[in-house]
C-alpha cells in the first residue's frame, strides 16, 4: 500500500514538474517571437480572435506531441537526476521546436507577418498553415526522439538533417499544386490552407518514415534517409495517379471563381483545396508503407 501511495505522489509531482517546464517554453517562445509577446504573456481570450487561438494552440499542441515521446526513468539514477535529465531534454527540444518553426515560417511566410495576418486581418488561412507547421515540426521531433533514444548528439544531427529536408520540401509546394500560394494567402482563401496542410503533413509522414531506420554507422544512416526520400519522390506520383484513376477524380480546377453578385473574385473553391490536401496526405501515407513497412528479410539474401 505504501508503495502504491508513494508511486501516486511521485506521478503527481512529475505532472506538476512537467507543467512547470512549460513556463520555460513561454519564455523561449517570447525570445524567438518578440512580436507575439502579447499572445504569450497577457490574458488570452480564445473567442476574441479565432485565428490567433488556432495559432497559439497549435504551438501548445506541438509541445504536447513532443512530450508524448519523452520518458522519465527513475530506476537509472533516482528522481532528482531523472528530473534534471528531463529538464535538459525539454529545453533542448523547445529550442529545436521553436527554431524549426521559425525557419520554416521564414521560408514560407517571407512576405507575411504574424501581426498583420493574425492580429490585424484575422487570416484563417495563415493560422491553419501555421497550425500545420507546428504539428509537422512536432511530429518530426517526436520521431527524432524515438530514433535517437535520448542521445543529445543524435537529436541535434537528425534535427539538422530533417530541417534541411523539410525546408526543401515546403519549397516544392508550387511544383505540385495549382494554387498560387502568395496570392491566395492574401485573399484568405481556405482552399490554400487545406491543400497546403495536407501537403506539409504528408511530407512530415515521409520525413518521419525516412528518419525511422536503423543503422549503426551515421554515414549510412544519413545515406538511407536520402535514399528513402528519393524513393518516396518516385513512389508518390504512382499512388497519386492511382487514386485519381481508381476514384475517377476530375480535376475541375478554376483559378478565379466569381461571386454570385459578380463583384468579387473568390479564388478556387474550398473543395478543390480539400481534394488536393487529402490527395497529398493519402498518397504520402501510402508511400510510407512502401518505403518503411516492406520487409524483404531473406527474400534478397546478403552473403
Amino acid at each position: 500500500m505504501n508503495e502504491i501511495i508513494d508511486k501516486l505522489i511521485l506521478l503527481i509531482v512529475t505532472t506538476v514538474f512537467m507543467s512547470l517546464t512549460l513556463i520555460l517554453y513561454r519564455y523561449a517562445h517570447a525570445l524567438l517571437y518578440p512580436s507575439s509577446r502579447q499572445q504569450i504573456f497577457k490574458r488570452f481570450h480564445p473567442s476574441r480572435n479565432s485565428p490567433d487561438t488556432i495559432h497559439l494552440f497549435s504551438r501548445i499542441l506541438g509541445v504536447g506531441i513532443i512530450y508524448s515521446q519523452l520518458g522519465i526513468y527513475f530506476s537509472d539514477a533516482g528522481w532528482l537526476l531523472a528530473f534534471i535529465t528531463f529538464l535538459l531534454q525539454a529545453v533542448l527540444l523547445f529550442s529545436c521546436y521553436l527554431i524549426s518553426i521559425y525557419i520554416i515560417e521564414s521560408i514560407v511566410f517571407y512576405n507575411f507577418e504574424y501581426i498583420d495576418e493574425i492580429l490585424k486581418r484575422k487570416n484563417y488561412t495563415y493560422a491553419i498553415i501555421s497550425f500545420s507547421h507546428s504539428i509537422a515540426v512536432a511530429w518530426i521531433l517526436k520521431t527524432i526522439i524515438m530514433v535517437s533514444e535520448n542521445n543529445f548528439i543524435m537529436i541535434i544531427m537528425l534535427w539538422l538533417i530533417s530541417m534541411v529536408i523539410m525546408g526543401l520540401s515546403v519549397k516544392s509546394y508550387s511544383l505540385v499544386s495549382k494554387l498560387a500560394f502568395n496570392k491566395l494567402l492574401i485573399q484568405k482563401n481556405l482552399a490554400l490552407a487545406f491543400s497546403y496542410s495536407g501537403f506539409v503533413l504528408g511530407w512530415t509522414m515521409i520525413i518521419s518514415s525516412s528518419i525511422n531506420n536503423q543503422s549503426e554507422n551515421f554515414l549510412w544512416f544519413n545515406f538511407y534517409i536520402v535514399l528513402k526520400i528519393l524513393l518516396s519522390v518516385i513512389i508518390f506520383p504512382i499512388f497519386n495517379w492511382g487514386l485519381i484513376t481508381i476514384f475517377k477524380l476530375q480535376d475541375d480546377f478554376k483559378s478565379d471563381m466569381i461571386s454570385e453578385n459578380g463583384r468579387d473574385i473568390l479564388g478556387p473553391q474550398v473543395g478543390y483545396g480539400i481534394f488536393e490536401g487529402i490527395m497529398f496526405l493519402t498518397s504520402c501515407l501510402l508511400t510510407t508503407v512502401i518505403t518503411g513497412k516492406i520487409y524483404f528479410g531473406s527474400f534478397y539474401p546478403g552473403f
Binding site: W220, F223, L227, L230, L231, F303
Partner: peptide
C-alpha cells in the same frame, strides 16, 4: 536513375 545508381553503388550485396 539517380535512385538506382545510388542504391547500386552502396548496396551491400
Amino acid at each position: 536513375v539517380v535512385y538506382l545508381v545510388l542504391s547500386m553503388s552502396f548496396s551491400h550485396s
